[in-house]
């Protein structure tokens, strides 16, 4: 295990139309960390996650993945932009992202969805990618759906396929943007089980979620965002049981109301 963090984020600021959503967020994730990011709607947690892989460009701050910092340059009119798009693409391929709405490519089968990245971005040989994709589908429990189209699968199955797709890229860090929020309640469990299995494997994961059970029991760190600022950051015990943050206690009680 290296000393330098798998992911290091410093001073992220982001504003939309004059409204500042992220007011300076910093975070380090070491290998094997499973970090739950909690917060009310509008607290900026999804925006923060999307700034990490530059789907949103932070107005200020920097992102470092496995020791490599994404180079930024100042933008005309204020703010900054990536200096090298190729570097951004490469680093994105090292980060795996799973979206709330799965975002599987509807014109490809599940198997094709999984091998798309490895074959066309990582340029690995197709046969190897297919074999690995099948193993991943087996792991998430939908290998029998490999030749089906996304529209034919349930929400839970689609999200598991999306997780397998992210895994197929052999990412260093995985980013989950509310992975169960779009699912019917009875399908949430199967996705959480996969997340738990990944955590137990030692994957480095950042999970934006509303699932308190997951945050308490599976993650080893909880970060609570409120109005663009980190209000609480610590182990689940520290944050849940012994929180010094009044707002966090309100947030949790509000969820259970």
């Amino acid at each position: 295990m290296t000393d330098s963090p798998a992911l290091s984020v410093r001073g992220i600021h982001k504003a939309f139309a004059g409204l500042e959503v992220l007011k300076g967020i910093s975070l380090d994730a070491h290998e094997g960390d499973v970090i739950s990011i909690l917060g009310a709607s509008g607290s900026g947690k999804s925006t923060f996650l999307r700034c990490i892989n530059m789907l949103e460009i932070p107005d200020a701050g920097e992102v470092t993945v496995a020791g490599e910092t994404i180079a930024m340059k100042p933008k005309r009119g204020g703010g900054q932009e990536p200096a090298n798009q190729k570097q951004v693409d490469r680093i994105r391929s090292e980060l795996g992202m799973v979206f709330q709405n799965f975002n599987l490519w509807s014109h490809m089968t599940i198997l094709q969805n999984l091998i798309e990245g490895p074959v066309h971005v990582l340029h690995r040989p197709k046969a190897e990618c297919v074999a690995e994709a099948e193993a991943l589908l087996e792991k998430v429990g939908i290998v029998d759906k490999r030749n089906a189209y996304p529209a034919h699968l349930s929400g839970g199955q689609q999200q598991r396929a999306a997780i397998a797709r992210a895994l197929a890229m052999q990412p260093k860090v995985m980013l989950f943007d509310e992975p169960t929020s779009a699912l019917d309640p009875e399908l949430v469990g199967e996705v959480l089980r996969v997340l738990r299995a990944l955590a137990e494997e030692g994957r480095t994961m950042l999970v934006v979620t509303h699932e308190m059970g997951f945050a308490r029991n599976v993650s080893n760190r909880v970060v609570f965002l409120h109005q663009g600022v980190v209000e609480a950051d610590g182990t689940p015990d520290e944050v849940f049981a012994d929180s010094k943050s009044e707002r966090f206690r309100q947030f949790v009680s509000g969820l259970h109301a």
């Binding site: 789907l55 490469r90 994105r92 391929s93 980060l95 992202m97 979206f99 799965f102 999306a162």
Partner: peptide, 10 residues
């Protein structure tokens, strides 16, 4: 969303 997933993959 599908275009975003492609961007996220690099």
């Amino acid at each position: 969303g599908e275009i975003e997933a492609a961007r996220a993959l690099g």
